[in-house]
């Protein structure tokens, strides 16, 4: 009986947050209407914008997979001078205002060597700058969970460091890396502040939503928002399903 009371109180408290998170989404879809959701997605500008957002966020994730995952492995496996400073620096992008990050990126890269303003490169950079820590931190935790003794044994069996990384560390930290990649990707999908400073055009979905809201009001921006959420949720579910099947 005591357990029942405990569970009821916690479930009540949790349900307040759950409703706060889900009601606006449900309300959005209900107010837009499912017909409108499907009609809007056929609008070329909306379709291109959502696809650009998904693609750019994906490129950012791929780049960090090749660069941030090895860095995460080094942090997880080795002790070196300045390690804690490095870890703190990697977390800074999560804390800074997104518009400030956009300004910093503009100052750094708008020197003419790389075509940055109003390009996909600029969009990818903005997304990557603000969301890379999600993947790096998750991968780092994943690698830490892989017992170092697996790697010791693998070395006694003839594997070198590279082989061990690919045959032992990476497969056994896979779930955390995939979760981190999903977190980073979803964070990239929603990126507005930094992207809008660097590339108003081509428009990613959050910029398009803002643009339509500013120009035409809520009625025209809400269906785009609903489409973006729908596509993101579908992609999320597919990736999670595939990952669970692989496990």
């Amino acid at each position: 009986m005591k357990d029942k009371g405990f569970i009821l109180i916690f479930a009540f408290l949790g349900s307040i947050l759950f409703l706060f998170l889900t009601i606006p989404l449900a309300k959005l879809f209900i107010s837009v209407g499912f017909v409108n959701v499907f009609t809007t997605i056929q609008d070329k500008q909306v379709y291109d914008s959502i696809f650009l957002t998904i693609r750019s966020a994906f490129y950012a994730v791929v780049f960090v997979c090749f660069t941030g995952v090895p860095l995460a492995y080094l942090i997880a496996r080795y002790n070196f001078w300045g390690k804690s400073i490095l870890e703190s620096l990697l977390d800074i992008p999560v804390m800074v205002p997104h518009t400030a990050a956009g300004i910093a990126l503009l100052i750094t890269f708008s020197n003419g060597y790389i075509k940055f303003i109003d390009t996909t490169t600029g969009i990818v950079s903005a997304m990557m700058f603000l969301s890379a820590p999600f993947l790096i931190n998750s991968a780092k935790e994943g690698f830490k969970k892989v017992d170092i003794k697996y790697e010791h044994v693998a070395r006694t069996l003839g594997a070198n460091k590279f082989s061990i990384f690919f045959s032992i560390a990476l497969p056994n930290a896979r779930n955390d890396i995939i979760n981190g990649a999903l977190m980073m990707w979803s964070r990239g999908l929603g990126e507005f502040g930094a992207v809008v400073m660097i590339a108003y055009h081509p428009m990613v979905a959050p910029v398009l939503i803002f643009d339509r809201f500013n120009s035409y009001g809520l009625k025209y921006s809400a269906p785009v928002a609903a489409d973006m959420i729908l596509v993101s949720v579908c992609l999320f579910l597919v990736i999670r399903f595939v990952n669970n099947r692989l496990n």
């Binding site: 017992d147 003794k149 697996y150 010791h152 044994v153 693998a154 070395r155 006694t156 069996l157 003839g158 594997a159 070198n160 045959s167 032992i168 497969p171 056994n172």
Partner: peptide, 18 residues
């Protein structure tokens, strides 16, 4: 270790879970 040719069996066996 990879060139030493000494086999190792840990107390908790450390079989690769993947």
């Amino acid at each position: 270790p990879e060139k030493r040719n000494f086999g190792f069996v840990y107390q908790d066996f450390i079989l690769f879970p993947n």
